[in-house]
């Protein structure tokens, strides 16, 4: 706080890279995707992987409960003061895209209350394939789908699959049981996304969230550069 030249300035309005006190704010990464694809499980795994090296916080956007936040609290992936639930009025996609003010407040309050943060993860409640985060809210977004939701989702595309900064195809361990063709999913994703990255992961295996954590570290390196 010693660099605090204008601490009486009013709060930031939107995606300003600096906080009112002049310090650089935390990197914000959004996680969206269909219901049950593994967003909360990925957030939990990322917290476990990164919490010893980074100062982290999480914002959840549930549809009508606080279940995601409560799961993260129960699993004790972070201290409770680092997890905030935003109420979304039955429309998580509105709260992450069209009217982002409640989420911006949650992010800023976390930074004010738990001190300097490196990274804030914002999870959207499970929604449809068109739900994406506003650039006014997050700096990068991860779209999480799973192999059990049908292996034609990458082919169908949609804004999440096509434009997310990272596409995660989760639950690869279930592919043999649900008859999903991972090679085909990879080819379809490549066709939709060109050079944008895709990670196939199973949180039930040893490697778990390793690749996604590496991607997050790279985003953070670029943000702080």
């Amino acid at each position: 706080m010693h660099l605090d030249h204008h601490h009486d300035g009013p709060a930031a309005v939107s995606a300003d890279a600096h906080r009112p006190n002049g310090s650089r704010r935390a990197l914000r990464i959004g996680l969206g995707g269909p219901v049950g694809s593994g967003k909360t499980a990925t957030v939990a795994a990322l917290c476990r992987a990164l919490r010893d090296e980074l100062s982290l916080a999480v914002v959840t956007n549930d549809i009508y409960t606080r279940e995601d936040a409560e799961f993260l609290l129960r699993e004790a992936v972070l201290p409770p003061e680092r997890i905030t639930a935003v109420e979304t009025g039955a429309c998580p996609h509105t709260a992450i895209r069209d009217d982002i003010s409640a989420n911006l407040e949650a992010v800023e309050d976390l930074e004010d209350e738990v001190g300097p943060l490196d990274l804030v993860l914002v999870e959207s409640g499970g929604d449809n394939l068109t739900a994406t985060f506003s650039k006014g809210l997050v700096d990068a977004q991860i779209f999480v789908i799973d192999v059990a939701g049908g292996d034609d989702i990458p082919r169908k595309g949609g804004p999440g699959v096509t434009t997310a900064d990272l596409l995660v195809v989760n639950k690869t361990d279930l592919a043999p049981y649900v008859g999903s063709d991972l090679a085909r999913m990879a080819a379809d994703a490549k066709a939709q996304r060109a050079e944008l990255p895709v990670v196939f992961q199973s949180l039930r295996t040893e490697a778990g969230v390793t690749d996604v954590a590496a991607w997050v570290r790279a985003q953070l390196a670029a943000w702080t550069a």
Binding site: E87, T88, G89, C91, T94, A95, D98, D99, I100, S101, A102
Partner: peptide, 12 residues
């Protein structure tokens, strides 16, 4: 009603 000021999450 689309003015982005958070009203959508409240039912009055």
């Amino acid at each position: 009603g689309r003015f982005p000021a958070g009203g959508h999450a409240h039912s009055g």
